[in-house]
Design a protein around this nucleic acid. Structure first.
Length: 294
DNA sequence: CCGGACTCCTGGTTGC
DNA sequence: TGCAACCAGGAGTCCG
C-alpha cells in the first residue's frame, strides 16, 4: 500500500538511472495496467519508444517521468505511474525478469548502459499512462500531468499552504480522517499513515473538521509530516549501490506502527487496547481512550 | 457539497 | 485436508 514515503523512495531511486536515458523498447504484458492510458497499448508503445526521459517528479502518490519533446513546440508529455495497492517499479539489468511484470520498459542510459524497468503489480490497481503536462494554477512554471491537476500539493511540498489547508478544513462539513484521505485537500496520505498521524496527535478519526481547534489542527499536520518524514528516512536507507532495487514496499513494515494493524495490542501511550473499526470500506485503528471526539 | 455504494483486482487468510 | 468465501484498499464514478 504505497503512500507518499514509498512513492518518494521509488522516485528518488529512479532519478539517477532514468534521467537522460532513452527508451529503446516497450513490452505490454497486461493491458489492464494501461487502464488510465487514453488509447490502445500500441499508442502507449509508439509514444514512449525512442523518447528521452527527464528527471522523475512526484506529487502525493503520483509519480511521473517527463519526456523530452520530439519537436520543441510539441505539447509536453510524461509517463505517469501510479502504484495503486501493490505496484512496484523495479530497476533491473537487461536480462532480469520479475514475476507478474505487467509492463517492461528497456532503456539505454548514456553512462549506465542498458537498463530495464519492470512494472510489477499483483493486484493491477496501479497503472502507467502517457499524459500531457499542464500548468499548475498556483505556479506558472510548474507542470503536472492532467491526471494529477486536481491533486493537492502534499505536506512535504515546500509550496504546501498550511493556512489555506486549515481554512478549508474549517469550512468543510466532514470528519478528519475522510479529509486526510481526500487527495484534493492534502495528498500523499493513505490509510496507514492517516491512522498513525491521528494516533500521534490524539485525534479521533471521526472528529468533525469544523470543530477541530486551530492548535489541534496544527498539531495534527505536524504529526502528519513527522510520520511521513520518519517513514521516508527509514525507506530510503535500503539502496543498493550498483542496481537500485526500487521497491514500493521496501521498508514499509520495517518501521514500528503504533495504531495501524495493532487492534488488541496495548496502546503504546496508555496501555489500553487499540480498537479497529470499519470506516470508508477500510479499517480505522485507534485508541478509544487517547483519541476521543471533542 | 456530502457520503455511501460500487468498480477495478489477486493472493493470503479464514471458516466450514 | 480442501475449497470457497472473505478481506485488504487507492481512486474514480455515479447516485441520492
Amino acid at each position: 500500500m504505497p503512500e507518499l514515503p514509498e512513492v518518494e523512495v521509488v522516485r528518488a531511486g529512479l532519478e539517477p538511472a532514468v534521467t537522460a536515458a532513452t527508451v529503446s523498447s516497450v513490452q505490454v504484458y497486461d493491458e489492464r495496467s494501461l487502464r488510465r492510458h487514453p488509447g490502445p497499448s500500441e499508442d502507449f508503445i509508439d509514444r514512449l519508444t525512442g523518447r528521452r526521459m527527464l528527471a522523475p517528479q512526484r506529487r502525493g502518490k503520483f509519480l511521473w517521468i517527463p519526456l523530452s519533446p520530439i519537436q520543441p513546440d510539441n505539447t509536453p508529455e510524461a509517463l505517469v505511474v501510479h502504484l495503486g495497492m501493490s505496484g512496484q517499479v523495479l530497476l533491473r539489468d537487461r536480462v532480469t525478469d520479475d514475476l507478474r511484470t505487467r509492463i517492461r520498459i528497456e532503456l539505454l542510459h548514456p553512462e549506465h548502459g542498458p537498463l530495464r524497468l519492470n512494472f510489477v503489480d499483483q493486484r493491477i490497481f496501479g497503472s502507467m499512462a502517457i499524459d500531457t503536462l499542464v500548468q499548475t494554477p498556483d505556479h506558472p512554471l510548474q507542470l503536472v500531468p492532467t491526471a494529477v491537476a486536481h491533486i493537492a500539493r502534499d505536506p512535504l511540498d515546500e509550496r504546501f499552504d498550511d493556512a489555506a489547508f486549515f481554512a478549508r478544513l474549517a469550512k468543510k462539513s466532514t470528519t478528519i480522517k475522510r479529509a486526510l484521505l481526500d487527495q484534493t485537500l492534502i495528498s500523499g496520505i493513505g490509510n496507514i499513515y492517516a491512522d498513525e498521524a491521528l494516533w500521534a496527535a490524539k485525534v479521533h478519526y471521526e472528529q468533525p473538521t469544523a470543530s477541530l481547534t486551530r492548535p489541534r489542527a496544527k498539531l495534527l499536520l505536524a504529526e502528519v509530516r513527522a510520520v511521513l518524514t520518519k517513514a521516508l528516512a527509514e525507506g530510503g536507507t535500503s539502496f543498493d549501490a550498483q542496481y537500485l532495487n526500487v521497491n514500493g514496499q521496501s521498508g514499509y513494515f520495517a518501521h514500528s506502527l503504533n495504531a495501524y494493524g495493532q487492534q488488541g495490542e496495548p496502546c503504546p501511550r496508555c496501555g489500553r487496547p487499540i480498537v479497529r473499526e470499519s470506516f470508508m470500506n477500510r479499517g480505522s485503528h485507534f485508541c478509544p481512550y487517547c483519541q476521543r471526539v471533542r
